[in-house]
Design a protein around this nucleic acid. Sequence first.
DNA 1: AGCACGCCGACT
DNA 2: GTCGGCGTGCTC
Length: 743
Amino acid sequence: MSKDSSDLFGALFEAAPAKSVMSRTVPVLVPMPAPRAYSYAVPEGMAVEPGSVVQVPLGPRQVIGVVWDGDDDGGVDPKKLRPISHVFDCPPLGKQMRDFIDWVATYTLSPPGLVARMALRAPAAFDPEPMIEGLHFIGGQPERLTPARAKVMEIAADGLSWTRLGLAHAAGVSTSVVDGLISQGIFETIFLPPPPVVAKPDPEFTASRLQGPQKDAADEILADVRKGEFAVSLIDGVTGSGKTEVYFEAIAETLRRGKQVLILLPEIALTASFLERFQDRFGAKPAEWHSDLAPKMREKVWRQAVTGEVRVVAGARSALFLPFEDLGLIIVDEEHDPAYKQEDRVYYNARDMAVVRGRIGDFPVVLVSATPSVESQVNGQSGRYTTIHLPTRYGDAALPDLHLIDMRRHAPERGGFLSPVLLRAIGKTVAKGEQALLFLNRRGYAPLTLCRVCGHRFQCPQCSSWLVEHRFRNQIQCHQCGYAERTPEACPECGTLDHLVACGPGVERIAEEVERHFPDARTIMLSSDIAGGVKRLRLELDAIAKGEADIVIGTQLVAKGHNFPLMTLVGIVDADLGLANGDPRAAERTFQLLSQVTGRAGRTGLKSHGLLQTYQPQHPVMQAIVSGDAGAFYEREILERERAILPPFGRLASIIVSADSRQDAEAHARGMRNAAPQVSGIAVLGPAEAPIALVRGRHRFRLLVHGRRNSDMQAFLRAMLAQSPKERGSIQVQLDIDPQSFL
DNA sequence: AGCACGCCGACT
DNA sequence: GTCGGCGTGCTC
């Protein structure tokens, strides 16, 4: 076509009222780090509204997007405009969900498209689930009644609908027998709606058996639930105090009011035993939602949450972005758990965002923990959250007696790490036929290996942390970045053979020591990297609960949720571990972890003990744990935080930058100082203190922003982004500590 | 985020 | 001479 003719077409187009001008343009959030929605044309005859889930062309591919609110700005070059390809036949995301997505995007300074994507993580779930093909028995006689045919007809005579395969299976014949009967008109094919993923939970399946403080606590929360308005409660009670039973009553009440419920749990706590407990109370299991849900199941749960068929979902943090039809309550169990933080792409803390979702949807949120986060503790003290204390254990369970072992006075034998006091206690426990748990939060055999001849230390070539020896796998591994190599026999520096020494203990080494001392005891060692994966882990945990082990040595995965009825001794091998790293939350994490581990013992009423090996018996965390005085710990920790990371730097507080390398971090910090001279508190963390995935190509760094007033932080970060637009998309922001501004 | 394009090193 | 690494830029 010549240039002239195209001009001619252009002229014609202007002369007549152009159709393209008539066609509507809408904003669509696409799964891409763009700062705002893109514009798409709505083809003639296509009906879309804000919230509609659509398929749109984006560059060379088709992607899932959501039609968004607001007038389209029309600023985009009309030549770029492309039409929406398809509208999915699924309920549009509601206004509350859209507001929530916008809020999260603004708060975390994430591209809204990437936040929206989290709500649409169920490929192929957006069109209706296909109907199930069923067979319905009409009656009549086939031409030739063989024994196989008779059997099929006898079974199908119940009048219920059967699937082709199911019927053949039940009759013990092949599907071709059934096919024969279908072709003879004995059966008709009908279409049935897909079955629900889970049965409806029944709030009256069992009556509440709560009493005393549990009953009072439940009543307090029920008052909020009945009002059906936004309110945040913090249930604070020791392990075994009946927290779950209390929030189950809140769930029951919400179900009676006809609303959906979301239970958030750290992935690791979403266990079969939790689901069974729920089933015991409600007669049906909740739907599950977590990262390794089978794709088919994922689609079903997503769709049925959207349509309202599923009433209760128990899920890991990503479940917070399920677009429920009518959500009326969120429970955040183990609210202090760091697993609620997502630290890639969109940075968010599901615990805080759950509170936001409750406020936007105007329904109650219940946070639950034996060791609440300092943030929630502060919010409780200031009255923003209603704190409900459950001070005692339930039934005949009793907390273990806790004692510190001062390792300076009770030193282990040479080459060992277990003090004589702890070894004696293990011996006594095993002799009584009870179980002992040794806890050390360090995988592998030894955290550092060095050459006795030249002093060479094995360091990770990628990220400079020490390589950890894993003797069972004959590997040395980097626990920061995953680098691994075979354990060498000779020192790579001086070439000397057999002179490498392991420094310090890991669980493998403790297991070795235990086996040396108690050769006849049944010993199980558990860490996240055991051969056989999650499946094997489950089996081992079950075996322990059944009493098939005498001594268990484990990392933090034994701390979470599992009940071991025969466990009467918990030994913390190195209670100080974790207090020394640069994390501003070191004390809090240690307190939480050690409280959880010691809480594993004593749940059946047997007399139980906890022994904590420490070099710092005067440390506030140790004192708080043995005295059971959590209040003192929190008081102190809150003050420490005020001093250390909330210094009064004018209106802005402190900023912590961490990056792939310390040089990067320092360069960024310099840039920030120039961009915002009013901020005097900038701390720099290198990768060892704050591990970050190495991302090639693009710089990627992380700001941990600590502040009292989120709006100030936001304003500052926005200003910074405006100054260096190139950093947009590569800066990931996590606003910490400050869950205040959204209330 | 994903994908294409485009530029330089080791190989069928 | 190509295959393929990853740095750069773009997507309504």
